[in-house]
Amino acid sequence: MKARTKFIIGGVLILGSVGYLMGSSIKDTGEYYLTPTQLATRVAADHSFYNVGVRMGARVVKGSITRDVATQTITFRATDGAHTFPVVYHGLAPDTFTDGVDVVVEGRLMPDGTFRATTLLAKCASRYEAVPPPSSAAPAHPAPASGPAT
């Protein structure tokens, strides 16, 4: 067998195993990324969708955050305008987690309708993008700030 053929066989073997690894790893670790409305629709159609690991991208309802420092529990409501879920999270929230920010929560929707988050990511317009400072002429803007935090 020519060296070139051997090399190609080796390459195909590598590519094949990488392809298999990519596919099987998606099955094992991939998570649905849904909005509250999509999640609500899914659950309504299929009750087995409760208690399945998903990521939900939503916005924190202003004034809904309660923090219990002693037990490290944070509760808030997450919404996309149409649907709202109460979220319970144990652990430290990133510095940028505050009223009105976009968050990505990773966790499970419980049959009682609360979302138990194991990861809480606060996302913002941008860590770089800022809006003009408030002045008497301009309305106050939400603080833009973000960064990866788990």
């Binding site: 690894l21 790893s25 094992d28 670790t29 991939g30 998570e31 649905y32 990324y33 990521r55 990773e106």
Partner: peptide, 18 residues
């Protein structure tokens, strides 16, 4: 038609052997 994300666990499974 549905968004599925892969995170650090996926990358670790794939990139560590490579």
């Amino acid at each position: 038609g549905t968004k599925v994300t892969v995170g650090p666990p996926w990358f670790n499974l794939v990139e560590v052997p490579l």
